[in-house]
Design a protein around this nucleic acid. Structure first.
Lengths: 146, 146
DNA sequence: GTCAATGCAAAGGTTTTGCATGATG
DNA sequence: CATCATGCAAAACCTTTGCATTGAC
């Protein structure tokens, strides 16, 4: 998602386009992978001296509620990335090194999965973790495993 | 997993079997679903007056490191349950109402999933969320969704 | 000018750590 | 009786909330 698209989305929904939000949009548009609230705070802090944590949280939340950002609960905390442009239902392969995500069009539920007796599925998760072509398995040593 | 098995596992690994750990084992052996640290604290607090949070956390961590307990990161926090007895690789269907988990023997990776170019998989998740036969879809209203 | 966004301060919740006390093997 | 587990207190951490000020439209 381009920074401009995110900004337009905010504007269209009646949110005010501030300097900070422009920078936030650019940050996520350019980020290769996921960013935690702290990542965002640190990165934005370089530009904005008196930046405060609550503003970062507020903006992350607003943007997530607008579907501009996607939230993902990692074992070491919540992180965000720009909403992916992939159309239709799909899943993700996430690189443990660069945390970039790749679309996986296949969905396990499209085939006949044997469910527990009488279980009705509401939601499902299917995620692959590993190393992408660019990072390669050699990245494993210093990887972001866990 | 039976409470006695958990206790034996602790003993075997040189941990001391205290009253509290016995109760903890029983609690997880009897719990239908997942328990958060707070759930455990509240439940154990009924029996132990001066129970402290740090002890609960310490024991949960120790038991998890010993593979007696399984940890699961829900969107609303970390929860624990007794390690499941299912043999071999499998996945889980989790009831959003009672949080009980059911084994799903099928694994998506057993069939030919088209992966991103050059992606090497290290780990994967496949989880189903919904309502089990006992709870039924009617539980949805008061369910533990989110 | 009006209303939303920000910064500041403070609070709430969760999890961890250090140290004296008490219980287990 | 040596050591580990516990309770207590306090801290660290993450996230949220209320209020005055600043800035966008």
């Amino acid at each position: 998602m381009l920074a401009q698209e995110m900004i337009d989305a905010m504007s269209k929904r009646g949110l005010r386009v501030t300097d900070q939000r422009r920078t936030l949009a650019r940050l996520f548009a350019e980020a290769p992978g996921y960013l935690s609230a702290k990542d965002v705070y640190d990165e934005m802090g370089k530009t904005y001296g008196g930046l405060s944590f609550d503003t970062v949280y507020r903006n992350l939340r607003v943007l997530q509620e607008m579907d501009v950002l996607e939230q993902f609960v990692f074992e070491d905390g919540v992180k965000f990335k720009a909403h992916c442009r992939e159309h239709g239902h799909h899943h993700h392969a996430i690189c443990l090194h660069c945390e970039k995500t790749y679309a996986v069009p296949f969905c396990p539920l499209d085939i006949q999965v044997e469910l527990p007796q009488g279980f009705s599925v509401v939601k499902h998760k299917f995620e692959l973790f590993g190393y992408c072509e660019a990072c390669g398995p050699q990245a494993e040593a210093g990887g972001a495993g866990r």
